[in-house]
Design a protein around this nucleic acid. Structure first.
Length: 554
RNA sequence: GCGCCUGUAGCUCAGCUGGAUAGAGCAACGGACUUCUAAUCCGUAGGUCGUAGGUUCGAAUCCUACCAGGCGUGCCA
């Protein structure tokens, strides 16, 4: 929508330059924004102010010049005013907005779609929690943000793949196997010391019970080395299945689950080390193998093969990211918990060591979640077993509220998740406030249908009865949706959608309380229903980007 | 010590690449239901944008220093 305005200003600039009134050596990008106050106009640009320096004229004079060169009959333009320090405020005709509303309504589910992504192949990796226990609330935020971001990026025209990286190799898997084995022995009466660094959650006991049910006493009295591999695999399978289920219950699915083990099986870890060694990025010291990451802005070099001969997690991550690039992804996005932020420089170093621009790689840090229950913070620790799992929270507040709460704040800000608020079905709870608006609109459609008033299938309706300021305020808000999606995709910020929806819907609630949609005036009723149809579509599409349902009745 | 994130109304947070009088929700106070869902709406009040400098026509936004909170700084993942 702003594109049309931008063109009007750009044409005026061209003409002013042609007339010799402006020099315009380097024309800055014309930025179209919304005026502070809607009464000032529909659109505004600060172009006269940004030109002030290079033109050596005061902003108001420049604004005058531009104004003089704006074409009289420019598309949909009603009037232009110069205000404040040199803003050009533009008012558009009602027709301008009505035409665009009609476009939006006809696009239906596609409204909001764009092609800013230009089909670029992107991979986004998120959650990637170790299969050593159920997902907790922090993973939940990562899952919600990653999934919403995926939906947004797709809507913005990127060719997107989602992936979960399964860390199924290494010491923590051995500890997992051993924890399960010890619980198994306990169940059969052979209690041994249970170390502090082992996994203590009840889910381990459940898996041990499963082993008892399936295998009976088969592993009783056998040496540890013969037992742990079995328990490791059993635990891994069970926990991973649980994670998949928790995620799918949370409406999060992945295009691909990528196993770390597979990188060892096909020797790509070895291959990556050798390749880096050939490039001179790897050296041996103190019996270990190091990556010279300090050559690429990391604080220090990092061990990739320990002196025990084991590879570090970081080592297989190198192979993994090499693999992503080999699969043809032009942009790689990883979501990580903020507690892993120390990991960022070394990963960027790896990409550079492999010869790629570090800008193809973007790590998004998702900050912590504090869970509040009755004003008290709930603490979390996987090993102690005292933590809030994602599934507990989802069961308590529902998928819609949980997702909304995870998505309503900028992901680099800490989040206070108030369980009591999320559960409430009152206007204080923003997710219900928005859903309620949708249900209200649907209720109006049911009411009009009963009276035999329905929008025609082809949506050809005369919209000229729409004349109220409030109606245009809603229409403008609807029409901003595609821009919100684009910005959200570019900035990789999901919280913009929730803020947008809240603003959109509050305009509707106000309108609803002052104006009746269904009346004796059939043309007016139809026009208003049409507006509501646009609104309904926008709420639905916005919620869809967040993975939240838009109920027709509440 | 060093690095990253955060600091905006009583609380939780927006504030786009510097722009017009710094916004919203909640809480507080006062109003509105014979009418399409009052799960709603309208109004009032509430601010030294952590502090101090700097950059400029103009700073919550950019730079520097400091203060406060969180996180990190493993041959853990």
């Amino acid at each position: 929508m702003k594109k049309a305005i931008k063109e009007i200003i750009e044409r005026a600039l061209e003409k002013a330059k042609g007339a010799g009134e402006l020099e315009l050596e380097n024309v800055p990008d014309v930025v179209i924004e919304k005026p502070k106050d809607e009464k000032l106009g529909d659109f505004a640009t600060n172009i006269a102010m940004t030109l002030a320096r290079s033109e050596r004229k005061n902003p108001k004079a420049i604004a005058e010049i531009i104004n003089r060169h704006i074409e009289n009959g420019a598309t949909g333009l009603d009037s232009v005013e110069i205000a404040g320090p040199g803003f050009l405020n533009l008012k558009m005709s009602q027709r301008f907005f009505l035409d665009r509303l009609a476009d939006a309504v006809k696009q239906r589910d596609d409204f909001g779609k764009s092609n800013v992504g230009e089909g670029i192949k992107i991979i986004i990796e998120f959650v990637s929690a170790n299969p050593t226990g159920p997902l907790h609330i922090g993973h939940g935020r990562g899952a919600a943000v990653g999934d919403a971001l995926s939906r947004i990026l797709k809507k913005a025209g990127y060719d997107l793949s989602t992936e979960y990286y399964v860390n199924d190799v290494g010491n923590q898997m051995n500890i997992l196997g051993r924890s399960t084995w010890l619980r198994y022995l306990e169940l059969l009466g052979d209690e041994k010391e249970f170390p502090d660094d082992h996994y203590r959650g009840d889910y381990i006991k459940d898996i041990a019970q499963l082993a008892v049910d399936q295998q009976g006493k088969e592993f009783l009295g056998k040496p540890e080395e013969e037992c742990v591999p079995f328990f490791k695999e059993l635990a891994r399978e069970n926990i991973l299945a649980g994670i998949r289920k928790d995620l799918s219950d949370f409406r999060v699915t992945f295009d691909n689950w990528f196993s770390e083990q597979s990188l060892y099986k096909d020797h790509s870890v070895e291959g990556a080390i050798q390749w880096l060694r050939d490039q001179g990025h790897v050296y041996d010291k103190d019996g270990a193998v190091w990556l010279k990451s300090s050559a690429f802005d990391d604080d220090k070099d990092r061990v990739i093969v320990k002196k025990t001969g084991e590879k570090t997690y970081f080592c297989s991550d190198i192979a993994y990211h090499q693999n992503k690039i080999k699969r043809g992804f032009k942009k790689i996005i990883n979501l990580m918990g903020a507690d892993h932020h120390g990991y960022v420089p070394r990963m960027e170093a790896v990409l550079q060591a492999m010869g790629y621009d570090k800008n193809i790689f973007k790590i998004l840090l998702v900050q912590f979640v504090s869970l509040l229950r009755g004003g008290e913070k709930v603490s979390m620790s996987t090993r102690s077993g005292e933590f809030e799992t994602l599934s507990d929270v989802v069961n308590e507040v529902g998928v819609d509220a949980a997702r909304y709460f995870f998505l309503m704040r900028s992901s680099d800000a800490h989040l206070d998740f108030d369980l009591e608020l999320a559960k409430q079905e009152t206007p204080e709870n923003p997710v219900f406030y928005i859903q309620y608006a949708h249900a209200r609109i649907c209720s109006i459609f049911r009411g009009s249908k009963e009276k035999g008033i329905e929008l025609p299938e082809n949506r050809e309706v005369d919209l000229s009865p729409l004349v109220e300021d409030e109606e245009y305020s809603i229409i403008k808000a609807i029409l901003a949706f595609p821009e919100v999606v684009e910005k959200s995709a570019k900035a990789l910020e999901v919280h913009r959608i929730s803020h947008y929806l809240l603003d959109l819907v509050s305009r509707f609630h106000g309108y609803y309380s002052r104006h009746r949609v269904i009346s004796e005036d059939i043309p007016l009723t139809l026009a208003r229903l049409y507006l509501l149809d646009g609104l309904r579509i926008t709420i639905r599409n916005g919620f869809d980007l967040m993975g939240i349902s838009a109920p027709e009745k509440m």
